[in-house]
Design a protein around this nucleic acid. Structure first.
Length: 568
RNA sequence: CGGGGUGUAGCGCAGACCGGUAGCGCGCUUCGUUCGGGACGAAGAGGUCCCGGGUUCAAAUCCCGGCACCCCGACCA
């Protein structure tokens, strides 16, 4: 491709709308254009990179036994009502009406439709397993799209679904898909963490996320280098620090005027948060639930939601708390009944806690469980934190921000039961197929790749997903000798199989070099009067700035060598 | 949905408080000079000032209503 004919130009200044690195660089490099919030046109540079990612994804999905299909984006609402997921997705689902006023939705995912494919195609255990996948546009009306391709309302996704006669077979495919995912991200040249994840209300027990470390990421993972434990903070378990366990003393009321927070309480009484209890009221599908946890910990709402098996969990309003018998500002599990009470495991660790007294301006000292208060259930509902001990002991957890680019999990029979995707087993009985599902946010991978690979001058594309592999730059391109040599090299590099962006524009060296740095193609090759005089061209690797000179005839091979070194 | 912010030339912004012929930088066009890290000079082109209503002799500017976009949070199988 000739830069002089290329559709887009680079911007000299940062676009005002973008704050996140990948968003800013993609706009500056002319890779994409915004159409609406969370909706973008992929211009040639972005599309070429996406195609390269997709190709790797296809190869690995095919190798893992997947068969590619293309399901419709436009789907009747009835498809979603069948499984109740029109309500589950709620406002995240885009709705529209056809000319006969029939209601349709734009698909945010495809479990319903793919399960209907399996229902039609699979009759017997002999027809199992099957793995189906597609790469296409998904639509989700996100409450807050952000950071360019990082969280869009229209985005590119690879979604795969597997169907099985038994749990063991599902597990085998699940493991095979995890391997495929590792291979995909490795081949893309993108270091990725694989962590235990929350599987949500529908999923079964196994779920893993693939997270690309990046400060701009929306997810937090906790890692233990010593034991290898790695989990999303939503899911992570941990052993919190131990609390002092003195001899239990008699509970007594203490005046704490104006004290609202744990921090104020600790300052007032000269104690540590670990010596306190906090009681948090939640509205769980309309019912009030009290969660009690040690003051140095936070309630993990995902864990609590899973424990309660509810659809919606939020903090109770002050009015709801008062109606349930609470004094705002000094809530307490002591003496409370009439609502469901969940205690975190941490309340059994430690003694003589300070807790609210359900009376504004007062707390209790020397509160001990279960002597002074009771709960209906003790469970792990604590948010794991960096510095906690990893599950099983043996190491300390570290926190890392990252971008979720892939998610695999075991679905079980939720969809096959509702859609009627059954098969006949060896005994002649009808059973629902067991399912797994496996997603990769393809467009998000591109954004994450740039988050991971850039410097203050621009993008540094990993060679396997770069839109072009070589940036051929002709300096003083209006000089016939340069133009002639550059044209010849352009042809030779192309003939050798390289994707070349050929900067044949009549521009100054500075402009061309800065554009090359901004676009971040792996190898830059310079043809100039100076190099011509020495009978060489100059090669420079974007990632580390390594340069070498070679006769023009050797350039294709030298470029290939540089590209190989740039891959992981 | 709550909070904060922004809409003025292709891009980045000033002008608004204090109403009076719409500006700067970059980019773009032409000519000349320059030529290995965003060159210089000269001459140009380019605007429904987000939309609608109101006040006024006069509105980018003041008032009312709306829309869009960005950021934080809530939300995110």
């Amino acid at each position: 491709m000739r830069a002089s004919r290329f559709l887009t130009k680079t911007l000299r200044q940062d676009p005002g709308e973008a704050e996140t690195v990948s968003h800013r660089l993609m706009l500056r490099a002319g890779m994409m254009q915004q159409v609406a919030a969370g909706v973008y046109t992929y211009l040639p540079l972005a599309l070429r990179a996406l195609h390269r990612i997709e190709r790797i994804v296809r190869e690995e999905m095919d190798a893992a036994g997947g068969q590619e299909v293309r399901m419709p984006t436009l789907q009747p609402i009835e498809t979603w009502a069948e499984t109740g997921r029109d309500a589950a997705f709620g406002a995240n689902l885009f709705h529209l009406h056809d000319r006969r006023e029939r209601e349709l939705v734009l698909a945010p995912t495809h479990e319903e439709v793919v399960t209907a494919i399996a229902r039609a195609s699979v009759e017997s255990y002999r027809d199992l397993p099957r793995t189906i996948y597609q790469i296409q546009t998904k639509f989700r009306d996100e409450p807050r799209p952000r950071a360019g391709l990082m969280r869009g309302r229209e985005f590119e996704m690879k979604d795969a679904y597997s169907f099985h006669a038994g749990a063991e077979d599902l597990h085998a495919t699940y493991q095979r898909m995890r391997e495929a995912y590792r291979a995909i991200f490795r081949r893309c040249g993108l270091p990725t963490l694989e962590v235990e994840a929350d599987s949500g209300a529908i999923g079964g027990k196994d779920s893993h996320e693939f997270i690309m470390p990046a400060e701009s990421g929306e997810d937090t993972v906790l890692l233990c280098p010593a034991t290898g434990y790695a989990a999303n903070v939503e899911r992570a378990m941990s052993i919190p620090p131990r609390a002092p366990e003195p001899q239990a003393e008699a509970m007594e009321l203490v005046a704490t005027p104006g004290i609202k927070t744990i921090e104020e309480l600790c300052g007032f009484l000269s104690i540590q948060p670990v010596q306190t209890l906090k009681a948090v009221f939640y509205n769980a599908d309309g019912a009030i639930v009290l969660a009690t946890i040690r003051g140095d910990l936070e309630v993990n709402e995902v864990k609590l939601k899973n424990l309660l098996h509810v659809r919606e969990l939020r903090l109770a309003t002050p009015e709801e708390s008062v109606a349930a018998g609470l004094a705002p500002g000094s809530t307490s599990p002591v003496g409370l009944s009439g609502v469901r009470r969940i205690g975190d495991g941490s309340i059994t660790q430690g003694a003589n806690f300070v807790a609210g007294a359900n009376r504004d301006g007062y707390h209790y000292q020397n509160v001990n469980y279960p002597r002074d208060f009771q709960v209906d259930e003790v469970a792990d509902i604590a948010t794991a934190q960096a510095g906690h001990t990893a599950p099983g002991g043996g190491g300390v957890l570290e926190a890392q921000r990252g971008i979720e680019v892939g998610h695999v999990f075991k679905l079980g029979t939720f969809f096959s039961e509702r859609i009627g995707a059954v098969f006949t087993d060896e005994a002649g009985a009808q059973r629902p197929m067991i399912m797994g599902c496996y997603g990769i946010g393809v467009s998000r991978v591109l954004a994450a790749a740039i988050e991971q690979n850039h410097d203050d001058k621009g993008i540094i594309f990993p060679a396997p997903i770069a839109p072009f592999s070589v940036h051929l730059v002709a300096l003083n391109a209006d000089q016939p000798a340069v133009a002639e040599a550059a044209e010849a090299l352009y042809a030779a590099l192309g003939a050798a199989g390289h994707d070349v962006l050929y900067d044949d524009r009549v521009e100054s060296a500075g402009v061309k070099f800065n554009d090359a740095d901004l676009l971040g193609l792996p190898v830059r090759v310079v043809v100039s009067p100076r190099n011509l005089k020495s009978g060489v061209v100059e090669l420079r690797r974007r990632r580390d700035g390594a340069t070498e000179q070679a006769p023009a005839a050797d350039a294709p091979a030298a470029v290939a060598a540089m590209l190989a070194l740039d891959s992981l």
